[in-house]
Design a protein around this nucleic acid. Structure first.
Lengths: 113, 113
DNA sequence: CAGATATCAGGTTGACTGACATTC
DNA sequence: CGAATGTCAGTCCACCTGATATCT
C-alpha cells in the first residue's frame, strides 16, 4: 500500500517520467514497480504510454482517477501524521523533522547503486 | 533477523518468561514468536522448559550460546547506530531520542489488544 | 559492442488472520 | 463454561536476486 502511495505521489511530483527514473527517485526496486504499475494501470490510476524519444522507455502519467485517489490518500496520511505527532508542540515537530532530515541527507547517496 | 534480536534481548531483559507474555512485551505476534523460537531453540540459543505452575505455559530462557550471540548482535547494532547518528552531536542525539521516546510513550497502550 | 530499460520468476522477511487442542 | 496459551497454516506486502528481450 505504501508502494502505491509513493508511486502516485511520485507521478504527481515528477510529471511524465520513465519507470527506471521513477524507481531511482523513489528508491524502489524496478521489478516491484512493474508489478505495482500493472495494478495501478488496471485500476485506471496510472497510464503507460510510449516515449517517442526512446523506445525502451514507458512514459508514466497520473490519470484523473489516480489524482483523485492521491488526494484521498494524502488526507489519510495527513491525519495519521497529525495523530502520530499529537504529543509534540509545533517547535518540537520542526526539531524532529530537521533532525531526521539531516540523517536522510547525510546518508543519501551512500549505498545507492 | 530483527525478530531474533528482539527475542534474545527480551529473554535477557525479562528473564524466564512465557511465550504469550514475551509476545506482549515485545509487541510481536505469538505465531511468529513460535516460528522464531523453533529456530532459536534448534540453534541452542533459547530453551523452552515446562512451567510447573501452569501447564499451558512454556518457560523461556536464554542459553549461554544465546547470550554470546546477543553480545555480538549488540555490538553490530551499536555500530550501526553510531553510523546512523554520525551527523548529529551528542545533544542532538539526546533531543532526537527524547522526542521519539515521547511519541512511543504517548501511543503506548493505544491499539494494543 | 556495452549499457539502459522493462518485464518476469522466484525467494525471504515480518505483519497479520484464522483455526485448533490443551489447560486454567 | 469462558479465557488464556501454544501451535500451525496460510495470506500479504515489501525487499532482493537474478534472468531475459529489446533498444540506444
Amino acid at each position: 500500500m505504501r508502494l502505491r502511495y509513493a508511486i502516485l505521489a511520485g507521478l504527481e511530483e515528477f510529471g511524465p517520467i520513465s519507470q527506471a527514473e521513477l524507481s531511482r527517485r523513489l528508491g524502489v526496486d524496478r521489478g516491484d514497480l512493474v508489478k505495482a504499475l500493472n495494478e495501478l494501470e488496471a485500476e485506471g490510476m496510472a497510464a503507460r504510454s510510449a516515449d517517442p524519444s526512446d523506445r525502451r522507455r514507458n512514459s508514466l502519467q497520473l490519470t484523473p482517477d489516480g489524482a483523485t485517489a492521491l488526494i484521498r490518500l494524502d488526507a489519510l496520511v495527513g491525519s495519521a501524521q497529525t495523530r502520530l505527532l499529537a504529543p509534540l508542540s509545533s517547535d518540537e515537530r520542526e526539531q524532529l523533522n530537521s533532525l531526521l532530515q539531516r540523517l536522510l541527507d547525510h546518508h543519501d547517496g551512500h549505498n545507492r547503486p
